[in-house]
Design a protein around this nucleic acid. Structure first.
Lengths: 231, 231
DNA sequence: AAGTGGTCTAGACCACGTC
DNA sequence: ACGTGGTCTAGACCACTTT
């Protein structure tokens, strides 16, 4: 439980202790790296590693020349794992099932066409269900830019989900996700065996690589689904 | 756009390039730190910094003695900012409003009482609304462990939300958040001016400090709310 | 037993932003 | 201008885990 006396973690713990004890109050400037290194009897690089971590966590604010201050209102960050659905279902645990419902080239809706890096013409539309022990777990509606991912045109996605195929085959430089709640459509209600209008958890994800839109996917989860994360 | 030739970022970019180009295939073991340092003409510490970052991002898997491998199925991570609601509303932008609806000591529900680190007796129950330009933006129902946070007993929370008060005054070592969709209750429907049963986005959060439960809060957002994040 | 990553050190130079 | 954090180096020792 206790780190070696001169480790960067020990330094981090000590700094955290001083913050929590209000020894260093929010907004206050703390000693410089050199001073802390002298006081704690370690190298400056060690202090730097410790403080850098706390700055990334939002607890400290660092600026050259101005020094390091305790954040007045620490913005908490949570780290969200984005597993592929197969892994999430197998971890339940449950037997994973996948079924492709639709695959065709089509014109994407206007808001998607207006997205940065979107192609001018048609995109590949894929619709699929992910099942847990046979029951629908998540519905997936995806638009795929075959211009940016030519290999996708030769893949039928009946055996391997686009979800997993993309993770394995396409590098992604940037992504944006939105989580929201929405009422079940008639199709979704049928799929999940729930009433029309039932509140469903949804994730809209867009990913880009080098400025080109790769895919937009809307995943809708079965009633009762919860997305968990830790701070 | 281009980092100095011997920076850890340049090393990271080069490694990323080799991964994306399949020069180093998924699952494959890549050269050791020492070899890369020699090849790229920099110190091993620089390589270490670069690879450590990629390992934290889930793109590499590192183990002593076994070496470093390209992750076969990179688990994507998104970084979720958890702002206090006042900041989120002011960033809309909108005028922030806060109203305390209820404040009383009461027995928490059974599942909360059974949570690890929960106190044996009553907890402080707080119910509040956060408003954006006068309209309800989020409803908040909170249980607060006054045993772990004695100062809360002397705070009335009519001016400052518990949300913000806690961030300013109580250190938190651990937290867990669940996001889900749920149908609007009659009270929520009245508050948000929507139909009963409307799909609402909800966040259940529990925080601990040194093993003691600090607070449990359920925040329910107005219809149409979206939680955004980037990969 | 041996090789790999994990870390610490002491020193140095530099970029940046504040003074 | 100058002080602070950001980073790189060369070397060293150690922890872990696989061979």
């Amino acid at each position: 439980m206790s780190a070696p006396p001169n480790s960067w973690q020990a330094v981090q713990d000590e700094v955290l202790r001083r913050i929590h004890s209000r020894d260093w109050a929010p907004g206050e400037t703390i000693p410089t790296e050199a001073e802390l290194a002298r006081e704690l009897g370690c190298a400056r690089a060690t202090v730097n590693r410790a403080l850098r971590g706390l700055a990334e966590a939002g607890l400290l604010e660092r600026r050259r020349r101005a020094g390091t201050r305790v954040a007045a209102l620490p913005v908490r960050h949570a780290r969200l794992r984005i597993p592929i659905l197969r892994h999430e279902i197998e971890a339940l645990p449950a037997r994973y099932g996948y079924e492709l419902l639709s695959r065709r080239m089509a014109a994407p809706p206007g808001d998607l066409r207006a997205a940065p890096g979107a192609p001018p013409g048609d995109m590949l539309y894929l619709e699929a269900v992910h099942r847990a022990d046979g029951a629908a777990f998540a519905h997936e509606a995806r638009w795929l830019n075959v211009g940016a991912v030519p290999a996708a045109a030769d893949t039928d996605f009946t055996a391997l989900s686009a979800n997993e195929w993309l993770v394995r085959n396409v590098p992604v430089s940037e992504g944006r996700i939105e989580f929201l709640a929405e009422a079940a459509s008639p199709d979704e209600a049928r799929l999940f065996g729930c009433a029309i209008g039932t509140a469903l958890f949804r994730a809209d994800r867009r990913t880009w690589n080098e400025g080109r839109l790769i895919t937009f996917v809307r995943q809708t989860f079965r009633p009762g689904y919860r997305l968990e994360t830790r701070i």
